[in-house]
């Protein structure tokens, strides 16, 4: 672009500065850490002790309060990783590459959590730990995509090349996200349909879905904290020769 017109909001260009990003993330972190702690403690207490049991599944239904938030987060985190990777590819924005890199390990743990709790829930409900069902298989592919991104990152000496290669992999893998979402509608699956949709009220009573919503928001806040911690480390590592990082280290 020759005329270099600035058509994105100001913060988008500020984000390109590692120093600015480092500082703003430091300031934002407590605003996510405190809600994360409060919501998760409240949500877990409500989920385990106060929510009524399901009339069919009994108390094993309480696994939903871990399973659904982790599955939603695993997919959101993947989308963020792909979008950040694309921004890094298009605008050559280093901080976006660092965000994308930091998403992968968190997303992988969330995919593992969703798969593990799903398997544990499947045992008393379906009588089996694992079935090769469309939803479960596409979720397993999501985990492999995360592991692929992590492995690809460690395969390159140059950070810039690694960021490009992983961004392409993440973008190609993005096709898996709608497959996960619609797998319960496109194929005959054992997995139950979505609990939350944007257009309809949940089929379960409020005392069941309110704690679930609290847990989902708590998971997102926790994810924000963990992501910012990882990205800040990444900034320090890659900007280690910059004078502001040297000053920061000397002050420690």
């Amino acid at each position: 672009m020759a005329e270099n017109k600035k058509w994105m909001p100001r913060w988008f260009y500020q984000m390109a500065s590692p120093r600015w990003s480092y500082e703003i993330m430091g300031k934002l972190m407590p605003w996510f850490a405190i809600p994360a702690a409060v919501l998760l403690v409240l949500g877990i207490a409500w989920a385990l002790a106060f929510a009524p049991q399901d009339y069919q599944q009994g108390n094993s239904f309480r696994i939903i309060y871990i399973h659904v938030p982790s599955a939603i987060l695993a997919q959101s985190c993947y989308m963020l990783m792909a979008v950040a990777g694309a921004i890094g590819l298009i605008w050559k924005m280093k901080v976006a590459d660092m965000v994308a890199k930091s998403c992968a390990p968190i997303g992988a743990t969330m995919a593992i959590l969703a798969l593990a709790t799903g398997a544990i829930w499947g045992k008393p409900t379906w009588g089996s730990w694992w079935v090769w069902d469309a939803r479960l298989t596409s979720m397993l592919i999501l985990l492999f995509l995360y592991l692929g991104v992590i492995a690809l990152h460690s395969a390159f000496e140059s950070e810039a090349t690694a960021a490009q290669a992983t961004a392409v992999l993440a973008l190609v893998g993005l096709v898996n996200i709608p497959i996960i979402k619609y797998s319960v509608e496109w194929w005959n699956t054992l997995h139950q349909p979505a609990t939350f949709t944007l257009t309809e009220r949940p089929a379960m009573p409020a005392e069941m879905w309110v704690p679930l919503l609290i847990m989902v928001i708590g998971f997102y806040c926790f994810f924000a904290v963990s992501l910012m911690m990882r990205t800040r480390n990444e900034i320090i590592h890659r900007e280690r020769r910059a004078s502001w990082v040297r000053e920061l280290i000397e002050k420690q």
Binding site: Q53, G58, S60, T109, M110, K123, V225, N233
Partner: peptide
């Protein structure tokens, strides 16, 4: 939990472990 205790508690224990990992590993790295 009416006989489902092992499943419920195992799920929450795995969640706890993975959350701790996601906090401690960036702290150690820093």
């Amino acid at each position: 939990m009416d006989g489902h205790g092992q499943y419920v508690w195992l799920s929450y224990a795995i969640a706890l472990v993975l959350f701790v990992v996601n906090l401690v590993s960036p702290l150690l790295r820093k």
